[in-house]
Amino acid sequence: MTVNVTRRQFFKLGAAGAATSSMAMMGFAPESAEASVRRFKLTHTKETRNNCTYCSVGCGVLIYSLGSGGENAHQEVMHIEGDPDHPVSRGSLCPKGSGLLDFVRSDGRLEYPQVREPGSSEWTRVTWDDALNRIARYIKDDRDANFVQRNAQGQTVNHWTTTGFLAASGSSNEAGYITHKVVRNLGMVAFDNQARV
């Protein structure tokens, strides 16, 4: 009931145009309404600040997870909502961002390294060691076989064109930076991210 009353007052104020900021007029929920719900639902959760992973508005989100974060305690995200302090989004999320929890907990999430062998129609689970050793070996063999130090005109080019890399513009700057550092210094030039498309 508390919530309903607060919301109704909020809309009344909005209609009168008095005492509410333009932000409230735009549909940003009043803090009191937020707070009275959250107190029940989110007790005992950990609050973490983050940003929506979809578009480049970069709306602020608060992620609530259960579990202490201690060594053996399993932590799980159980709620995500807009961050009311965020100067762009002021607590709002769009229909994409409102589904972030279902992205984090999607059945489509990959959990283990796997390999699909040539000609096969199925996946086989492998260890991280197996997967990374395999890839490192492929990188080395292909690079050693096809790295070009000098081109036909005798110019120094020191590049490797037979392996390419697409980087993720949904990943962090830190991932992007280390990816560039590694990929470029292997000599790769066929290297792009989603900005190309």
Binding site: S169, N173, D192, A195
Partner: peptide
């Protein structure tokens, strides 16, 4: 478009 397409462009991850 993507949440960090600006960042990856800034960091030069293009051919």
């Amino acid at each position: 478009g993507h949440s960090n397409i600006q960042g990856l462009t800034d960091l030069g991850l293009l051919s």
